[in-house]
Computed example of a mutant assay.
Amino acid sequence: MQWITLVVLALTASSNALIRFQCSQLVTQRLDPLVNPGLIPSTHVHQIVGGDSFNASMAPTKDMPGESSCTTCQFSEDFSNYWTAVLYFKARNGTYKRVPQLANSGFSGAAGGGMTVYYMQDPLYDTAQKSKVTAFKPGFRMFIGDIQARSLADAARFRQLTYTCLDTFGSRDGESMAFPNRVCKEGIMASLRFPTCWDGKNLDSPDHMSHMSYPETGTFESAGPCPASHPVRTSQVMFEVIWDTKNFNNKADWPTDGSHPFVWSFGDATGYANHADYVFGWKDDSLQNILDTSCYAASCGGKQQSIAEMNKCSQKEIVKEDIDSWLDELPGGFQASYARTPSAKFRR
């Protein structure tokens, strides 16, 4: 209770920052220190951005700023790691090809496309950002999504994981929880929004989710209150990942039944199993200092680096395998699946 009291007192400071920044690609390979800690290789391919101390075993005591020599993120004191699964195209002949990524608007040139990261105190459309939030603490980590979801009912718990079919590069309307079932002229954007209510005690939990919660009623966008079990409001961490599907827009290459041809690297062909991982690694109080200012996106002070400097940071693959050629099966032996897969495939 003392820890929660101290956090609540800290939240009385004025803060109205909305942080939006790009991270270039760090590495793409089969490693996952949350779901498969220490396992080399992990079950499926991920694309990772952030600090270069990322590895297969990241204990909560790990000093990410101290052990990192660089970060692929625009804020040079952010040595956090952010990662998602990788999208593949499945051709009519059953072979798979990795879908490349695009940098978001305003971040052209980011190596590998990477992802855009947000820390929001209020909904993205609310530039006032009046809510009081606290930054995460060293050792904090979380996971969101259900990697075995194959239906809307399975995914209903994670309604803030969505896709946008980009008819234009600036499209932001028409979100869905399943893969878009039509040609998306400029690509598919995956949006992944983490919970915003913390229990105030645990930096992690066995499922990497239970220490966090969405609002008790309503949503983050409707400013719903946090439940009593998770009373500490944090900023909402959000990823935007743009998949460059333009080279796969010829419907003559799609399945003969007219369904969409995309599949996640762990075999989900529905899109309902979208998920993301986050390990906090900002240096000292740099994130809280930014959250305590009045700023928006790139005006949010802090120490920032150019895209060229971000791109200099990279990491060599530990897992040596082909993930980019036309493949007969997905790395790890997966095939496209429209049904729930055996839980043993995903060890926690």
Rank of each mutant, 00 (worst) to 15 (best):
M238E: 03
D322V: 03
K130N: 11
C70S: 12
S325T: 14
A223T: 05
S151Q: 06
K62C: 11
D244I: 10
L327I: 07
S265Q: 02
G170E: 09
I188A: 05
T28H: 07
H46M: 04
L11M: 06
Q288L: 13
T84L: 02
K130Q: 13
A56N: 02
N36Q: 13
T12M: 12
D154H: 14
I323G: 04
K137D: 00
A269W: 13
Q121C: 07
G271Q: 13
E329M: 15
W326K: 14
V133K: 06
A13K: 14
M189F: 15
E67L: 00
I19V: 06
A128F: 11
R347H: 14
G224R: 02
S151A: 04
H230F: 03
R182D: 08
D32C: 01
V8L: 15
D146I: 12
W282F: 00
W264Q: 09
R348H: 07
D268I: 01
G66T: 03
E321V: 07
A297S: 10
N181V: 14
R172G: 15
T61I: 13
S314L: 07
F262Q: 11
T134R: 08
F21Y: 07
G267N: 03
R347N: 13
S105I: 14
L192F: 12
R233C: 04
E186M: 11
F107T: 06
P206A: 13
G332T: 00
G174L: 10
K246E: 06
R157C: 03
D63G: 03
W282C: 00
P60Q: 02
Q288N: 09
N55R: 14
N104I: 04
A273R: 10
H208C: 11
G301F: 01
A103C: 06
V263T: 03
K90S: 00
G51K: 15
V49N: 05
S131Y: 09
L6P: 05
P60W: 01
Q304V: 05
V279T: 02
P60D: 00
H44G: 12
I40Y: 03
I147D: 15
D63V: 01
P215W: 04
S151P: 01
A339V: 13
D324K: 12
D277Y: 03
K246Y: 06
T256I: 15
S69Q: 09
E317C: 10
H44R: 01
S325E: 07
P100T: 06
K251C: 10
W326P: 13
Y338V: 14
P100C: 02
N93Q: 08
A156S: 11
A339H: 12
Q288G: 04
I290P: 02
F143V: 11
Y214M: 10
D292I: 01
G112H: 03
V86E: 08
H46N: 09
D126P: 08
P100N: 01
Y119F: 09
D199N: 05
N81M: 01
R193A: 15
I290Y: 04
S205C: 08
K316V: 06
F107Y: 06
T164F: 04
T234Y: 09
H230N: 00
Y272D: 09
S294D: 03
L87R: 08
Q2C: 13
K97Q: 11
N36R: 11
S205R: 11
S15E: 09
P138E: 01
L87Y: 06
W3G: 15
D328V: 15
D52V: 01
Y96W: 05
L18Y: 07
